[in-house]
Amino acid sequence: MNIRFLAQSEYFNGLHLKDDIVLEKEYEQGPFTNLPKVRYFLYYLEENIRKEVMPYTDKVDIFNITDCQSESDYLYFIEYVDMLDRTYTFNIIRYNITDHTHTKIISLKDNLKLYPDNKQIKIFILDDSNLIIQRALPKVSENGKLKEFFDFSLILFNFVKNKQIIIEDENLTRNGIEFILPYSDNNCIMKTGYSLFQNNRHANLTKEEAAVESLFVVNISQFISDLQLEQPNLVMNAIDQSYYDTTVINAKLIENFLIYSKFNYENNDENIIFYDIETKEIYTCINKTTTGEYLLKNATVIEDTPYMIMKNSTGTQFFNLISNEIDATYPVEYNVRFVNNNTVISTIVEKNIFGKETEVVCIHKFPIKKVILQEKGEYIGCVTSDKETSYIFLK
């Protein structure tokens, strides 16, 4: 267990990229009324150094870019260039976060006024030479109350050979790719079909209008090869599927577990599902709810065991989904904030002799309740570089 406490002045809003490197974004007003400019910063936690990425270029989050490579050396972003004729060129830049070199991999021209309300583009970087461009245009529901990005078209683009293939697969073109989560060097989790939980979609779409939602474990190399054959129906075995009366709300990966949340409209409950990608074993936890607030943030994995974290009047309980028993309960005064494998991070409030309150961050080794390390300071957030190392940000 390695713990590093890092002081931040006001807030921390970072995304862990690789090792001890965290990405932070800052937004500011640019030349566009509909989209802000964005600046990228790489925070090297071990050195406690923050560096801006290519500060002399103008950047905008006009496209949603996903790097499908696990533990990638690259950061992808969009640089824009004013062509001085009321048009802009958008360059997708691949930036190496370790040696700080960069390459322009593709340039796109588009009508900026369409974004973000009348056009959406998602770009999935599959490997060192292939990416998918998914364009989505809005469609209006039959009842006329809902306008969403449901009209999809996809292209496989080889940016090394400058060659593109129109994707014909019926599932992808009808339902679209909602997200891809990198899992290992050549595998990822892909979800097709949009969730009905957002924007009251279930109430405003008929069953015929709704998408079939599917979760797949995808071998990226095989996926690219299959797309290159331009088949109308790719053969992919789904982990799980949902349609209309059930919908996937969200998903995340912890170690070898895909953890996702499914809401059932008929039963008005939510299932938290742990799928072991390696063994294909499934563990579930049902939450009866009337609010639809998903519990994915309370799902975790400790030493290859799936747990649900539950808070009640007695404290914070860790419910083991394999044994169906509570393995540990932390007293109510400890507010559990973060779990990294067997490291539990909590906060308590202490008062001095004058009654002044001070927040203290406490470290426990699961399932032991005893505090083995503590530090005064207001907890802001935590990121991990591996199962053993946690970086805790204090105000």
Rank of each mutant, 00 (worst) to 15 (best):
K161P: 01
S129W: 04
K18W: 04
N340I: 07
K370D: 11
V81D: 07
S323F: 02
P138K: 13
A7G: 08
D169F: 03
K387M: 12
F257V: 04
E230P: 02
T98W: 14
T101E: 12
N341D: 08
I93Y: 03
L35I: 15
I286F: 12
I273L: 05
K104W: 06
K376C: 11
D110V: 12
Y260K: 01
E388I: 11
T98Q: 15
S195E: 00
Y44N: 09
V360S: 12
E293Y: 13
E142Q: 10
P55F: 07
V349M: 11
T206E: 11
N233T: 10
A251H: 01
Y74P: 06
L172Y: 08
T33K: 11
I21W: 12
D151H: 07
S225K: 11
I277R: 00
E230M: 13
I189C: 08
L154C: 11
S323P: 02
T358Q: 10
T343L: 12
Q222S: 14
K18H: 14
P138F: 07
Q241T: 15
N175Y: 14
E270R: 03
H100P: 03
Q134Y: 06
A211F: 13
P232N: 01
I322A: 03
Q317Y: 06
Q222C: 14
I155K: 05
V301R: 08
F257I: 02
N237D: 14
I132K: 03
N298C: 06
G30R: 01
I92A: 01
E359C: 10
Y11E: 12
Y379H: 06
G377H: 07
D58G: 05
Y330I: 00
T289F: 13
R135G: 07
R135H: 05
T98E: 13
I3H: 00
F319E: 04
I282C: 01
V81P: 02
I277S: 02
I165K: 06
S323K: 09
Q134K: 06
E213V: 08
Y379E: 05
I249Y: 10
L296D: 05
E357P: 06
Y95H: 01
L108N: 10
L253P: 02
V371S: 05
E26G: 04
N219S: 05
E10K: 14
H364K: 08
V140W: 04
I21K: 14
N162E: 14
K119R: 09
I282S: 02
I220Q: 01
D67W: 04
L394N: 00
E46S: 10
G355Y: 09
Y74H: 06
K297F: 13
G193L: 01
